[in-house]
Design a protein around this nucleic acid. Structure first.
Lengths: 326, 326
DNA sequence: CTGAAAGCGCTTACAG
DNA sequence: CTGAAAGCGCTTACAG
């Protein structure tokens, strides 16, 4: 404040008055001082040591349960935050009336949503509050208003299915997630593209959309396996579904991989711990979390982001749940 | 601060030192001043007008990877924080020089450590900074200096083993966690107590301490199953170990539960998704997280806690990984 | 380990 | 309108 006073050719007292918006200052003096305050990045003492200035706080909101997937994403987010000196506040998404403004008032500089769903009204509220948003693994089509981080789902679905085809399977089913979710659509179309390219027919009841959940996998796979011409291999929309598929096979006396090959998607920590260990398409979930945090911080600093959607590469990890078709 | 100084019979300088967690204050003086600060609801100037006063921020630190266990604990913590209007900051434990003071400076009101290990020096630093600590699932013996939340591990180990005995198993092995971890010791002694009460012998090589990890379970169970007189049932120190045990059995051509019964511990979400679904001892992990947060907030408000260690009840959940001994 | 004293960054009542 | 001066609430280097 002393520096500003000197530069403006006024006393410290006058600068203080300008900072505090008192009325007894000449308009020209006020303007000159204000200009210098901005030039010098003056921060009021109340905020000087507050987190907001030193270490920006990013809110991470989860929809529903913290699955293995969200936990790994959070790890990536925490790692990057650690590197960049940011703090991470976690919460369940609870989109109340003053939600966005409350977050800003609490000092949050950006919001990362993990697999959450926002309506246009939510986006408007964020816009008004000036809170940048990054969506991790968007369930809906990447909107140009929203920055998002995802994975190459189509390529992953293609790779998973090609792997099964290369093992000699021709009757391959797909047990997927919500029909409306873009990531599910991309995986499913990757599957379709591989099947078509190989000239393998896809009966309509071989494709089962549902939910990214164990119970859904159990149910859908049961229906698939009870068909007159059941598949010899199943590509599951994510690992959790794959475990449901495996359990459906087990309760029918089918062995994995001898009687049924199963491929998952995600490669969360669970995949390695399954019995047999699960062949799956790895998403670099931690890296996706890190990218989301970096993007959030850049937005918080007012930077422009070149691309509003970033996709990281998936990779097939072959383990013991797939085998040649007999 | 002057008021506090007068009431405590010390100088303002000394009060300032206590507030800032400096080391050059006698423990009794520190305690007396701290008491008065709480009584007078003293708030550091930085936070006086900030949100931090209204909505307290609790730091949750994790040691190592965010397993299914820590993720569920975090859910319980977030749920309780939501109810009580607190914010939750998550980070990996990185115990640098000014660690404790930095946390206070960043506005944290209490610290929850999930399965972390602290030395006496860390506890001293926390004491000096005036930051209350709650340990969730303490790895070491609950110290009277530390508030902690755990589960009835002995009772759980007893119940798991009695379940196996009631199915006719006499040769029951234990594949556990770190020999030094109290929770592991309690589970192991529960196992021993049940075996002794049933008059079932426990050969020394039937008890295998190790780590709470899949790989450790895989290795130890392999050694157990390769014995001349292998067990017909294995009690695993946690679910992750149990999955290693199951995989060790599978690679030896043993079926679960026909050839080997397996019981886990924790009942994380994974247990339900295993194939076959895992019989395990449920820890109420979410509730434990909620209790930890409530305790942390009470400590942050200067309340005295009656008991420095709280144990919540465990419960056996019978699924399909255990069957009568043939 | 303690506190007197100097100092920092700011605010405000008041004289001009 | 302006600023010298007193003051507030806090911190810190340093002497004891």
């Amino acid at each position: 404040m002393a520096t500003i006073a000197r530069a403006a050719g006024v006393s410290v007292a006058t600068v203080s008055k300008v900072v505090n918006g008192r009325s007894d200052v000449a308009p020209q003096t006020r303007a000159r001082v204000r200009e210098l305050l901005l030039q010098h990045d003056y921060i009021a003492p109340v905020f000087r040591h507050s987190e907001a200035a030193a270490s920006p706080t990013i809110e991470v909101q989860f929809a529903g349960d913290l699955k293995s997937y969200s936990a790994e994403a959070l790890e990536g987010i925490m790692d990057a935050a650690d590197d960049l000196g940011a703090s991470v506040v976690t919460s369940k998404a609870s989109l109340t009336t003053n939600w966005a403004r409350d977050l800003v008032a609490a000092g949050r500089r950006a919001l990362i949503a993990v697999t959450s769903v926002y309506t246009a009204a939510h986006l408007d509220a964020l816009d008004r509050a000036g809170l940048p948003l990054v969506v991790l693994d968007p369930l809906h089509l990447p909107h140009s208003r929203v920055n998002s981080v995802g994975a190459t789902n189509f390529a992953g679905g293609l790779a998973a299915t090609q792997h099964l085809l290369s093992l000699g399977h021709r009757r391959v089913g797909y047990v997927g997630g919500p029909a409306m979710a873009v990531c599910n659509q991309a995986r499913m179309h990757g599957y379709r593209a591989a099947m078509e390219a190989a000239g393998a027919p896809v009966p309509t009841d071989y494709i089962r959309p549902g939910e990214f959940k164990y119970q859904a996998g159990l149910r859908s796979a049961g229906a698939l396996l009870d068909l007159d011409e059941p598949p010899t291999a199943i590509f599951a929309g994510n690992d959790e579904i794959a475990f449901g598929v495996i359990e459906a096979a087990r309760t029918r006396g089918l062995r994995i991989p001898e009687d049924l090959s199963v491929v998952g998607f995600d490669d969360t920590l669970l995949a390695r711990m399954a019995s047999p260990p699960l062949t799956t398409v790895r998403q670099p979930i931690r890296e996706m979390g890190s990218v989301a945090l970096r993007t959030a911080l850049r937005l918080a600093n007012g930077e422009k982001i070149e691309s509003h959607h970033i996709e990281l590469a998936t990779e097939l990890v072959t383990r013991a749940s797939t085998a040649p078709c007999r």
